[in-house]
Nucleic acid binder design. Structure first.
Lengths: 223, 223
DNA sequence: GATTGTGGGATTGTTGAACGATTCTACGAT
DNA sequence: ATCGTAGAATCGTTCAACAATCCCACAATC
């Protein structure tokens, strides 16, 4: 059964535009294509061996995810989040994640475990100074929180918010010490949840957002 | 000053693909293009006098807004929300709108008025049996609620959710008596807010969502 | 009779070239 | 130093073509 689902996923993996978009998404997220960079249709299309029209379709897909911005007759650029963007981003996360977390007592055990497990991982990885993977686990933690709401639309939008935030980290440089500060925070949130103190966990999460937003905005606006 | 902003908006109104997308969006939302309908590239492109490539770009834009669904090598179709979609939709709205409403005491007076005013309008229009426009005011009420969060990303995503919900109404037929039921509900929510009983207003809103979801899902799954 | 091939026809996916429109750049005029 | 302008580069859009894929009807098989 599970193999069937696997095959289906493979089959649907068609569309050159989609594949090109996936490739570019990776390059953008790991910083190979820096924020602010202009993506020339001719240059990239030539390098990847796809036609301009197909490439433009790929650009549209990434524009939808807010990784690229399109300026008319000027081309597409890798998004470069501003301080205002970050504030907007955290305002959205505050509502979505705090609201989702409040549902803690109404969801399945599997959903709750999807919040706890990433924190255990993050702690373990942090102890090994593996900050890159600790950061990934941190994102899984927040994905787990949004998952409590049981809405794929909300989860998808959150993924876009996370990706955009990654870009902001990139601009602000130093991703590592960023996560370093907040891993223990997440741990405390899970502890509160396990003790049934949901409201307090929500407060903690909210404070986490306050601190993270302030920190990131400050770095961004310092140029 | 305001004319400058106006001019800028006009200037940015370029891109044929964008204009085509806007035109199609209208047709979809007012039901002229019924949910489930397949949109032939050749037929529509010919009728609108744009090339296939440009039309495909417009399709991508509407796919992003979830008004159309794209099936590989099969074409694009007007989205036809299922019962599961509606549940997903309301799960997202519950989190977003209840979370936003909780911010009532922390926002500007202008933001609060953007919640109150549409309800007054809806009541007035309902008294004149103008259900179409009462429904529009109802949407403004919910847009106002999301606006309390001060996040354009959240507001944009909510607009997409609203548009998708309009399609669901279309499938379930009968939009009018739908709004008819819930106008008084909104009025009560605003009353509670004005009395400073924010928590109770949030509860009311949540119950509204329960009822609306149940009603809509029932109609959809009855085919 | 229901299921399983097997065509042909229609539609989408992708490419390549072309040309007007817009933006950018660099040079020169005031 | 500011402004204006010509030319180059790039984008926006169209068109035509062909391969890949899907759909439908018809025949073959059990």
């Amino acid at each position: 059964m599970s193999t069937l689902a696997q095959n289906k996923a493979d089959l649907e993996r068609a569309s050159t535009a989609q594949k090109v978009a996936d490739m570019l998404r990776e390059r953008v997220l790991d910083g190979e294509l820096a924020p602010g960079l202009r993506l020339s249709e001719e240059a990239i299309g030539g390098a990847l061996g796809v036609s301009r029209n197909t490439l433009r379709e790929a650009f549209r897909l990434l524009t939808r995810d807010r990784l690229l911005v399109h300026e008319h007759s000027r081309g597409v650029f890798v998004r470069r989040p501003s301080g205002a963007d970050v504030r907007d981003l955290y305002a959205a996360r505050r509502v979505i994640e705090c609201g989702s977390l409040r549902l803690w007592n109404d969801v399945t055990e599997a959903q709750r475990e999807a919040v706890r497990a990433p924190v255990r991982q993050a702690v373990a990885r942090a102890e090994k100074n593996d900050w890159t993977r600790a950061g990934q686990a941190n994102i899984q933690f927040h994905r787990g929180i949004v998952g409590l709401a049981s809405s794929s639309r909300l989860s998808d939008e959150s993924d876009r918010l996370f990706a955009e935030l990654m870009l902001a980290f990139r601009v602000a440089a130093e991703i590592n010490d960023f996560y370093q500060t907040y891993v223990p925070w997440n741990r405390r949130i899970v502890e509160l949840l396990n003790n049934g103190e949901v409201a307090q966990a929500v407060d903690q999460l909210s404070e986490y957002f306050d601190a993270a937003e302030q920190d990131l905005v400050a770095r961004l606006e310092a140029y």
